[in-house]
Design a protein around this nucleic acid. Structure first.
Length: 812
RNA sequence: GGGCCCAUGGUCUAGCGGCUAUGACGUUUCCUUCACAGGGAGAAGGUCCCCAGUUCAAUUCUGGGUGGGCCCACCA
């Protein structure tokens, strides 16, 4: 055994070993209970970040625990390669523009490129020890996923849940596609609030403040709060739009904030979703002036052809020329931008596909309550989101790369012709329907839109399960667990419940575990723009994957944890310590079974006839520990397992137990062979239990130690498929006596330390006082003399009146 | 504006109606050739955010406040 543990070498070795030996392979034919995990497929655009290593480690603790507990773990791995994020990455990598290419060519390029980078991307997950079965692999864009996603679309269509509608929706002029609510993010910026003067039919001007003067040609009404005494008189009159000399109504609207700007709102097409709502409420016709690429159209009159930002300047200039600007204020405000490209979003009326689901809010909440949430309070976020839903789910995107919406339109009668399930996956642009239209026409127009990423990612349980045959599928659904972080409860989790509701009339998983986030050292979110991003690869090469996982086990499930590099040192120290302790143990266990011939016939061949009291003590203590850890892990409380095992290992096992048994191990000629075998027995089982309890958290070092010694006795190929410890050797009296031992030992150490003595220095006499039976004291006396290095120890029984449980008088 | 979570020695964290409040990092004194100096034995360091209530008893339960984080909505 090497003097020092080489984490890098060892971790790479075992990572390859696990893969080669198929340690984590799912056995579809096994009769064991299945534990299935619907893992988040990480987005391939970009490297693994620290947040990933945090939450994936946490789910892996559970996967490994369940596997060792005898479950047949179904743990597929997928990547999310669908959607805009990927499209943009490929465009950048290959220096192309999707919109100038034939769709099929572009998609082919994307698929090819993804194939090139996949191994490198997935490597990160393997490297931190994720115990998924990487052979059960999917990407959300492969043919298999396309088929399932399109099938889902067709089924929903036939259920009457899908409709196409022309409606104002959030639009990104840069990507030129509709986007979802969740794809927007806030961007705070400095803008000018321009106070514009409009003429009115009352022959008195009104002043309106806006940050978007360029929308002026699209103004359809002016809104004033009826409670506003300043402007009340204008209600019912008309305002005249500058440059266009168009009259618009001035209406009463209670939604108007009298405090903001001048207290008057000009209602445009469309400044925000309020404008859309008001349009319906007041039955006003929109005047759309924006093209899909963000330029103004002919309805904008003299501003036609300008991009929004240019138009803003031009309108302000024109207003100035007519002396219509009262003042300009510089304000800080928040605008919505597309999270992928940081472009200001607009609201445009386009034709989009929707899933109708607003009527099912109550059912979704009911389903949410059928799932067991860890931690429980995360369910409230889910319900909150559902309560706040205002629109049906938009699922169409006007992009090249994505899963095509599987239908055509009849050229003659405009009838919709759906693809048939047997022809999936289908691309309407290159494929044709299998039969003619009812009107007997065989000419079709392809639907060009593709499905939004979430329309597919919400099917990950189906995608994974449908890789198997019908019989196996039944065993796999609903899945046991959905692990993920809390930020995507509102879309990925929610959308998956929705799809499962429609397709299975059932919840997709029985339990969900929601991880927190890895934050920067000051408790702030990590982001590229703040420059506070920590690279897991760097941390792994500097410390180790085990150290990183050890850190990830340090906070309760659901809690965010600020990352501090020094915490990785703790994990690293742990691996060193357990390496050294094992080195010691294996040295003393090398002759263990050999010396034990007399018992070899029996089943428990290595069990000695008499187990010494202090060995019964450690075995009893560790039995309790194992039980506690098992219960904790059943409830996803891996942090308790880590803390309890770590503390036990370091203090109870290393500082005390190893010191106590040294004499019996080293000096068997003096102490006898039987006490030595007893110590070996205690050592063998307590260390093995510790290694097993830590195996889910630090899989590499524990595998290394298992392979070095235990494998030849335990005969199982890897510790990660060995049995979870169910050791049950509780001995209350041994615990009581052992605790007495430890207290006396501590007392002696304290006295020595306080007088600056070496712990090895002999002492004359110890008077050990306690409440244990005298005969038990005799049993531990020799160990106690050896461990404390005392010449003489006398025992005194403490009586009932004493306020102390233990006491020791040390004479030097 | 709405919701959720969190608040414990300098830093991070465990915990619980009653114990001297857990552990790690850091600080500090000493020890150490026999697994480990990336170690061991000690020490110092806390009004368990504030206020009120429930209780024989509150760091723990309830209400209010303050501060932080996240999600959602709004932002003319």
């Amino acid at each position: 055994m090497e003097k020092q543990y080489n984490a890098k070498e060892s971790e790479e070795k075992w990572m390859e070993f696990w893969e080669k030996e198929n340690i984590y392979k799912f056995d579809a034919n096994s009769k064991s209970e299945i534990y299935s995990i619907d893992t988040p497929p990480p987005t391939v655009s970009g490297k693994m970040h620290l947040g990933h290593s945090f939450s994936y480690s946490q789910q892996d603790f559970i996967a490994r625990f369940q596997r060792m507990s005898g479950k047949n773990v179904f743990y597929p791995f997928g990547t999310d390669a669908n959607g805009l994020a990927t499209e943009r990455m490929i465009e950048k990598m290959k220096n192309v523009k999707g919109q100038f290419m034939k769709r099929s060519d572009f998609v082919e390029l994307c698929l090819k490129t993804l194939e090139e980078i996949r191994a490198d991307f997935v490597y990160d997950w393997k490297r931190i020890g994720i115990s998924a079965d990487f052979n059960i692999f999917y990407t959300t864009i492969d043919r298999h996923s396309q088929k399932i996603s399109q099938k889902s679309f067709l089924q929903l269509y036939k259920m009457g849940r899908i409709y196409k509608k022309k409606a104002p929706f959030i639009w990104c002029p840069e990507c030129q596609t509709a986007i979802a609510q969740v794809e927007m993010k806030d961007s705070e910026r400095q803008s000018n609030l321009v106070y514009m003067k409009f003429d009115t039919t009352l022959n008195e001007q009104i002043t309106i403040a806006t940050t978007r003067p360029e929308l002026l040609p699209s103004c359809v009404a002016i809104h004033i709060n009826p409670d506003d005494k300043r402007y009340k008189k204008f209600i019912g009159a008309k305002a005249i739009i500058p440059f266009l000399n168009r009259e618009v109504k001035i209406t009463a609207n209670k939604d108007v904030d009298m405090e903001f700007g001048s207290g008057i709102v000009y209602h445009c097409t469309f400044g925000d979703m309020d404008d859309v709502r008001w349009m319906e409420e007041y039955n006003i016709e929109p005047i759309e002036i924006l093209n899909k690429n963000g330029t103004l159209n002919e309805k904008a009159g003299r501003f036609k052809g300008l991009y929004v930002k240019e138009a803003r300047k031009a309108v302000i200039k024109a207003l100035e020329e007519e002396k219509r600007i009262a003042k300009t204020e510089s304000i800080k405000h928040v605008v919505n931008v597309h999270e992928r490209c940081d472009t200001d979003i607009e609201i445009l009326t386009t034709e989009q596909w929707f899933i109708k689901y607003l009527d099912l809010k109550d059912d979704f909440i009911k389903f949410g309550r059928k799932i067991k949430w860890y931690p429980e309070h995360m369910r409230i976020r889910y319900e909150n989101w559902i309560h706040g839903l205002k629109w049906d789910c938009n699922i169409s995107r006007q992009r090249h790369f994505g899963i095509p919406i599987p239908l055509w339109y009849c050229k003659k009668c405009s009838e919709i012709i759906l693809a048939e399930e047997k022809q999936l996956p289908v691309d309407p642009l290159t494929d044709k329907p299998l039969s003619n239209c009812k009107c007997s026409s065989n000419e079709f127009i392809a639907e060009k839109d593709v499905l939004d990423t979430w329309a597919t990612s919400s099917l990950t349980p189906d995608i994974a399960i449908e890789l198997f045959n019908d019989k196996e599928q039944k065993k796999l659904f609903p899945m046991s667990l959905r692990p993920q972080a809390h930020d995507i409860i509102t879309f990925w989790l929610f959308n998956t419940v929705v799809k499962s509701y429609f397709h299975h009339k059932n919840i997709p998983w029985k339990e969900v575990m929601i991880s927190g986030w890895a934050l920067d050292p000051h408790g702030k979110k990590m982001s590229k723009s703040k420059g506070n991003v920590i690279e897991p690869r760097e941390m792994i090469s500097k410390y180790s994957a085990d150290a990183l996982r050890f850190w990830a086990a340090g906070s309760r499930l659901g809690d965010d944890l600020p990352f501090q590099e020094k915490d990785l040192v703790t994990g690293q120290k742990f691996t060193t310590k357990i390496w050294n302790a094992s080195k010691f143990a294996f040295m003393h266990l090398s002759d263990y079974n050999k010396d034990d011939k007399e018992n070899k016939k029996e089943k428990q061949k290595e069990k000695p006839k008499k187990i010494e009291l202090m060995d019964r003590w450690i075995l009893s203590k560790i039995s309790r520990l194992a039980k506690e850890c098992t219960e904790n892990l059943m409830n996803y409380e891996y942090s308790h397992t880590k803390l309890a095992t770590e503390t036990f290992f370091w203090h109870t096992f290393c500082d005390n137990y190893l010191e106590i048994i040294k004499d019996r191990l080293y000096n068997s000629e003096k102490r006898g062979i039987s006490p030595k075998i007893s110590a070996q027995y205690g050592l063998y089982h307590s260390l093995l239990t510790i290694i097993k309890l830590m195996a889910p958290i630090t899989p590499f070092i524990t595998e290394e130690l298992y392979q070095l010694y235990y494998k030849k006795h335990e005969k199982i190929k890897s510790i990660h498929i060995a049995d979870w410890p169910s050791i049950s050797l509780i001995d209350e009296n041994a615990e009581k006596v052992g605790d007495f031992f430890v207290h006396i030992l501590q007392q002696v150490r304290k006295v020595k330390s306080e007088s600056n003595m070496s712990l090895k220095k002999p002492i004359k006499k110890i008077t050990a006082k306690g409440r244990i039976p005298k005969e038990n004291f005799e049993e531990i006396k020799e160990d106690l003399i050896a461990t404390t290095n005392a010449e003489e120890i006398v025992f005194e029984q403490l009586d009932e009146k004493s306020d102390k449980e233990y006491d020791a008088i040390v004479e030097m």
